[in-house]
């Protein structure tokens, strides 16, 4: 058993440890299929944020960013994709919530955690930043008030 783990680790070292978006199909809130690996933003950065309607820090983070999002887009051209991990019980709450809050994000549904698993997310909120080439360059697992400043500084850095 130990040998096999060791060989797995050695095997892992043979490859670049730098993830990009997995080839997974998700649906948006309107039911349209979206191939996640095809998401792009004309060479500008993309924020990917995993959230759920039952997760208070997630909503705090996305609502805080929503207040300033117009400025973020004007200054950096950034795009935000919010991936909801709400399951069958709460998935129907997603669309009313995002519309009522007036979020201008692309919201995708991951009701059975396929995307969550593929991106190695343990718990929400977990926010990733992708550079213009679709490479994950920054991520943060948690949200405390003020974390949005660090995220924005990173966005500015990769928007150039």
């Amino acid at each position: 058993m130990k040998k096999s783990i060791l060989s797995l680790l050695l095997f892992a070292l043979m490859f670049q440890v730098s993830a990009q978006l997995p080839k997974i199909k998700l649906k948006d809130v309107k039911g349209n299929s979206v191939d996640v690996s095809q998401i792009s933003n004309n060479g500008k950065p993309i924020i990917i944020s995993f959230w759920a309607t039952w997760c208070k820090p997630c909503k705090a983070e996305l609502n805080t960013i929503a207040d300033e999002f117009d400025d973020w887009v004007d200054e950096t051209g950034v795009k935000l994709i919010a991936i909801s991990i709400d399951d069958a019980r709460s998935a129907s709450r997603v669309e009313p919530y995002i519309n009522a809050m007036g979020w201008e994000y692309t919201v995708l549904m991951d009701p059975n955690g396929n995307m969550k698993r593929a991106m190695n997310v343990n718990n929400v909120p977990h926010t990733f930043l992708l550079d213009g080439n679709g490479k994950i360059v920054w991520d943060h697992n948690n949200y405390s008030p003020g974390d949005e400043h660090e995220l924005y500084e990173e966005v500015v850095k990769y928007a150039k």
Binding site: S4, V17, N120
Partner: peptide, 27 residues
């Protein structure tokens, strides 16, 4: 596990055009 690894290796050696990515997590 060995089978998975050898399958991956075979697949990888056949298509060298794209780089492979390893990722993971722990809790």
């Amino acid at each position: 596990l060995g089978l998975i690894l050898s399958l991956i290796s075979t697949y990888v050696s056949q298509s060298d055009s794209e780089p492979g990515y390893v990722s993971g997590n722990v809790q």
